[in-house]
């Protein structure tokens, strides 16, 4: 057990991490319920089980920093402070959604909060995140860009091009590979030449090999802080490989049957970031009442946001014809 007196994180930060992870989990669970009620159409990729990664970065980042995430991005968006109804409303295709139903679950975007988009074509956003980092360097501002992606993404060319470029330009960027052991339905080990899909490639781009337990919120927070600080103070990019596991299938349609039962059970029961963090809070003598108080507060927030989303009107079909161009319209001839 860690020595409380020697605690570099502290109770206040820990409670923030707790609240954050709970929020991410409760919203994802709600999203799942809403599918079952057929209130969410289309597809959706839940990050259940991976909350510590987006959560820790959410706490460690500052206002003005940029984040880029994937189609599995509800949690990463919420972690930057986007509203719950903004996210759930978008999934439900309602007017209160972050993009009024035009983008959907895979493209959550909230620029005001630094959420520079959710990207659904593998690899693209690593190169784009270099661009916001380049702009920060160019403008001599101190924002940091963070780019989240999965293990499967390390096998597309864009991953390699982006890392090389980030390094030669010394960009203020943090690349975070959430290694959940699977691409869609195929184990990453079956299609990758190295054991650690991101970390074992780091040396090819003169980057440190960083592997972290992505389900340990404290470790994640420390790793995030170090990398963010490095980027913010002009010491260049980092590549972090965070080991984790998704509790659900790849997407809505996937029951995840290709994963061995024992493996799933082990991650769900012994390595659940939230269950384990709750235990840790108790070990740090944070009282049960404080912990449950936060739990009920989050429950209430999620219920309220769900009601707002359910009561929000469906978008006007005129929305189809807006915002193709910067003038707000879609016309291409006079």
């Amino acid at each position: 057990m860690e020595d409380k007196l020697n605690d570099d994180i502290g109770e206040a930060k820990r409670l923030q991490l707790w609240e954050m992870m709970l929020k991410l989990r409760s919203v994802e669970k709600k999203a799942y319920d809403l599918f079952l009620q057929n209130l969410i159409k289309g597809t959706s990729h839940l990050a259940l089980g991976q909350e510590a990664i987006a959560g820790a970065f959410g706490i460690a980042l500052q206002e003005g920093d940029y984040t880029f995430c994937t189609y599995r991005g509800h949690a990463h968006t919420l972690a930057r402070g986007s509203s719950i109804e903004g996210v759930l409303g978008e999934l439900m295709g309602r007017q209160c959604g972050l993009m009024k139903g035009k983008g959907g679950s895979m493209h959550l975007t909230d620029v005001e909060k630094g959420v520079m988009g959710s990207y659904a074509i593998i690899g693209a956003h690593l190169t784009i995140a270099n661009g916001t980092a380049l702009a920060s360097k160019y403008n001599k501002t101190k924002e940091v860009s963070v780019c989240f992606f999965g293990d499967g993404t390390t096998n597309i060319g864009a991953f390699h091009e982006a890392l090389n470029m980030a390094k030669i330009w010394d960009l203020p960027i943090v690349f975070v590979c959430e290694n959940n052991l699977y691409m869609e339905y195929t184990a990453i080990s079956e299609v990758t030449a190295v054991e650690h899909p991101a970390a074992d490639r780091a040396s090819a781009y003169s980057l440190d090999k960083i592997i972290v337990d992505g389900n340990d919120a404290d470790e994640m927070y420390r790793t995030a802080q170090t990398a963010i600080k490095k980027a913010r103070y002009g010491h260049g990019p980092s590549l972090i490989e965070a080991k984790t596991y998704r509790h659900s299938g790849h997407s809505r349609a996937d029951p995840g049957k290709y994963r061995p039962d024992e493996e799933v059970k082990d991650w769900m029961e012994n390595k659940d970031p939230i269950k384990n963090y709750r235990q840790k809070l108790l070990e740090f003598n944070i009282d049960e009442k404080t912990i449950t108080g936060i739990e009920s507060k989050i429950q209430q927030q999620v219920e309220e946001a769900t009601n707002i989303s359910k009561n929000s009107p469906i978008p006007d079909i005129k929305e189809i014809y807006t915002d193709v161009w910067a003038d707000g319209g879609y016309k291409w001839h006079n």
Binding site: G93, K102, G104, I317, Y321, V324, Y330
Partner: peptide
């Protein structure tokens, strides 16, 4: 389809 990318929400996609 009109000269727009496809929107996601069901009512929007169905009308595009």
């Amino acid at each position: 389809t009109p000269h727009v990318p496809l929107p996601s929400a069901d009512i929007l996609e169905d009308n595009t």
